[in-house]
Design a protein around this nucleic acid. Sequence first.
DNA 1: CGAATTTATTGACGTACTTCATTTTTTACT
DNA 2: AGTAAAAAATGAAGTACGTCAATAAATTCG
Lengths: 195, 195
Amino acid sequence: MTINNKIVEYINRSVNLTDQEADVFSAAFREVKIKKRQFIVQPNFVVKSRNFVTEGSFRAYVVDDKGQDSTIAFAIEDWWITDYNSYILQKPATMFVVALEDSVILEISYEKEQALKQQNHKFETFFRIRAERTAAFMQQRIISNLTLSAEERYENFIDRYPQIVQRVPQYALASYLGMTTEFLSRIRNKKTAKK
Amino acid sequence: MTINNKIVEYINRSVNLTDQEADVFSAAFREVKIKKRQFIVQPNFVVKSRNFVTEGSFRAYVVDDKGQDSTIAFAIEDWWITDYNSYILQKPATMFVVALEDSVILEISYEKEQALKQQNHKFETFFRIRAERTAAFMQQRIISNLTLSAEERYENFIDRYPQIVQRVPQYALASYLGMTTEFLSRIRNKKTAKK
DNA sequence: CGAATTTATTGACGTACTTCATTTTTTACT
DNA sequence: AGTAAAAAATGAAGTACGTCAATAAATTCG
């Protein structure tokens, strides 16, 4: 069994690797421990890695000129997180990515990822599937933002990602769902009052 | 030069194909003419093709239980359109895709696409890059939906996609931007009044 | 364990945007 | 070209959600 066996388990759900391929793949990753409140991405720097979370949780967000922040993504165990645009297009980041808890990630550099994809068709397939799933996920979110009310978006989120609701602060969830923390508080209390 | 040379030109911007590879790739596509107001995707059917627009324009949208429709995507020449979730995950569509003008598309079936990706690493790379760009694009849209006011979203859209603004009906653009056609009308008239 | 800090709650008030109904303008069709 | 149909504009009234300010609750950390 290789060192980074969690990432190997993960990729094997999409493509079947030989033991040797698994070693090559996992060797491209580096394990890094991140303390709560530590940033792994900051605006204006070009993001140099894609990160797979093995322990803990993260939040990616942007801050606008009025100081308002909007959560773009969450990640817990088995999820990936980075500033996607910055990483993929190798241009300066616009987001912060911060640890919400003490965490452990496996990070792969942009260059190593490119090399993996070139060297083995299966690795290319894996990243293709990842990107497709990411796009499908984002499209669902766009649809939910366009068609649902604040309360419906919240209920929808609870249904789909109950584990995340438990672990992230309310203000972060509110800004992910496109509402204020006050409004989310009212939605929640209205519901519990009914019971 | 192959029959479907437009798709070959397009893929050659991402990966360099030999003449023979270009022939194989373009042979997987079929040209189809679509009349204005004709649907190429309807809810509840599993989408069987990904479509590259060579002439004309399309609009993808969902309709909610109150009969409100929300535009999910537009496509003009050199863009792709389908119900992404349905196609990628091969599950029933939730969207309509309709021609806004008399149009011509090059369609590739799900099975043929899978075969292309398996048979040649370069084709896999092409679809991986496509998916990444799609995800990057969608993320930008999510950020714009979360951080901008209705008027700002409209101005942002004009800056980025002036060619599209000219060609799509106002109600479709409004529902893409997440506002009513009445409100977009007011935004536009406020601006022209100022001049 | 207790003080400091962060996060969530609550109320009163404000506003960006929606809804509905009607009219005007533009587009499509024979 | 002329009529029907679709799309856009406009006004008046309503509402889902935001803002601000103050308090309460939960969490962090010495």
